[in-house]
Nucleic acid binder design. Structure first.
Length: 121
DNA sequence: GCAATGACGCTCT
DNA sequence: CAGAGCGCCATTG
């Protein structure tokens, strides 16, 4: 496994349950700005025993970005819904509500009312 | 080592 | 808001 993958996995593992992040954001947090595509590439080569919450990574539109033929898109959606993530009719989630923010960026860090129940991890 | 690929993002229309 | 086009870069064959 390359160091690039290790960095990516480390960041994805930090995403708490009930929240999601974007490929571009994960790339930046992993110290790989501009390498959003490589995030997907790394997650594709991921194994189940690696214990990485890959389902919490979506594209910048808040949409599942997996190919249909693999059948993983429905799996990801089911797992996210199980964490309390809500999808609209277009199969998209509201990044405004569910995106993960690593550090407090400002005074307002409003506690998002997670449908799942508890608002903290 | 070169050319093609891909679980993406941003800008313009 | 939605779709099309172009840029991006590590990994693969």
């Amino acid at each position: 496994m390359s160091d690039t993958y290790s960095r990516i996995y480390a960041v994805v593992r930090r995403i708490p349950r009930g929240r999601v992040s974007t490929y571009g954001e994960v790339a930046r947090l992993a110290g790989l700005p501009g390498c959003a595509r490589q995030i997907g590439y790394a997650l594709h080569a991921l194994a189940d025993e690696d214990n990485v919450p890959w389902q919490r990574v979506v594209n910048a539109r808040g949409e599942i970005s997996l190919p249909r033929d693999a059948g993983l898109d429905s799996l990801q959606r089911q797992m996210l819904e199980g964490e309390g993530i809500e999808f609209d009719a277009r199969g998209r989630l509201d990044l405004k509500r569910f995106v993960w923010r690593p550090r407090r960026t400002g005074p307002i860090q409003a506690r998002l009312p997670l449908p799942g129940g508890r608002g903290s991890d």
